Amino acid sequence: MRTPLTQRVQKHRDAMRASGLRPVQIWLPDTRSPGFLEECRRQARIVAAADAMDTDTDAFIDAALADLGDEADA
């Protein structure tokens, strides 16, 4: 026999499925695990170093923003 809580959960899941949605399970890093913070810092340093070497992206973004400004004036 189902408890009222499991019945409510099942009703909610059925309604979500009826609206065209489906459940998806995803796995994320455990932010509480030892070493998580240091791994974030390590990856951030890698991204920052790559970003510092890439001057083309800044020029591209500036040009794209300038184009958007021209269209907004029209």
Results as ranks from 00 to 15, higher is better:
Arg13Gln: 14
Ala48Arg: 04
Met53Thr: 12
His12Gly: 07
Val9Thr: 05
Leu5Cys: 09
Arg8Ser: 11
Asp56Tyr: 11
Asp73Cys: 09
Leu21Ser: 07
Met53Val: 10
Leu65Thr: 02
Ser33Lys: 11
Asp73Glu: 15
Glu38Asn: 12
Ile26Glu: 14
Arg8Gln: 13
Ala44Glu: 15
Asp14Val: 00
Ala72Val: 06
Arg45Phe: 03
Leu28Tyr: 04
Arg17Trp: 00
Pro29Gln: 14
Met16Pro: 03
Thr31Met: 10
Asp67Phe: 01
His12Trp: 09
Ala72Cys: 11
Cys40Thr: 12
Pro23Ser: 11
Asp73Trp: 05
Ile26Asn: 13
Arg17Gly: 01
Ala48Phe: 02
Arg17Asp: 03
Pro4Met: 03
Phe60Pro: 00
Arg17Asn: 03
Thr57Lys: 13
Ala44Leu: 13
Lys11Glu: 14
Ala15Pro: 00
Ala49Asp: 15
Pro23Gly: 05
Asp54Phe: 14
Leu68Cys: 13
Ser33Tyr: 01
Gln25Tyr: 06
Asp58His: 12
Thr55Phe: 07
Asp56Asn: 15
Asp67Tyr: 05
Gln7Val: 00
Ile61Lys: 11
Arg22Asp: 12
Asp14Thr: 02
Gly20Val: 00
Thr31His: 12
Ala15Cys: 00
Glu38Ile: 04
Arg41Gln: 03
Ala52Thr: 05
Asp62Tyr: 01
Asp62Met: 10
Arg41Val: 00
Ser19Gln: 11
Val24Gly: 01
Leu37Asn: 12
Thr6Glu: 13
Leu21Glu: 06
Ala15Lys: 01
Ala50Asp: 15
Val24Thr: 07
Phe36Ala: 05
Asp14Ser: 11
Met53Glu: 15
Pro34Trp: 04
Val9Leu: 05
Leu5Glu: 15
Glu71Phe: 04
Thr3Asp: 14
Glu38Ala: 10
Arg45Pro: 06
Ile46Val: 11
Asp54Glu: 15
Arg13Glu: 13
Thr55Asp: 14
Gly20Lys: 04
Arg22Ile: 02
Ala48Gln: 07
Pro4Gly: 05
Ala72Ser: 12
Thr55Lys: 02
Ala74Leu: 08
Ala44Met: 14
Leu68Ala: 14
Pro34Phe: 04
Ala44Asn: 15
Gly69Pro: 04
Ala59Ser: 11
Pro29Ala: 14
Gln7Thr: 08
Asp73Val: 04
Val47Ile: 06
Phe36Asp: 03
Leu37Thr: 09
Leu21Ile: 03
Asp51Thr: 07
Glu71Thr: 06
Arg13Phe: 01
Met1Lys: 09
Met1Leu: 08
Lys11Thr: 11
Trp27Cys: 03
Thr31Lys: 13
Pro34His: 10
Pro34Leu: 03
Ala59Trp: 02
Thr57Asn: 14
Leu65Val: 01
Val24Arg: 09
Ala18Tyr: 03
Asp62Phe: 02
Arg22Lys: 13
Thr3Glu: 12
Gly35Lys: 02
Ala59Val: 07
Pro34Tyr: 04
Ala64Ser: 09
Phe60Lys: 05
Ala50Trp: 10
Ala50His: 14
Ala49Trp: 06
Ser33Gln: 13
Thr57His: 14
Val9Cys: 02
Val24Met: 08
Ala49Arg: 13
Gly35Glu: 04
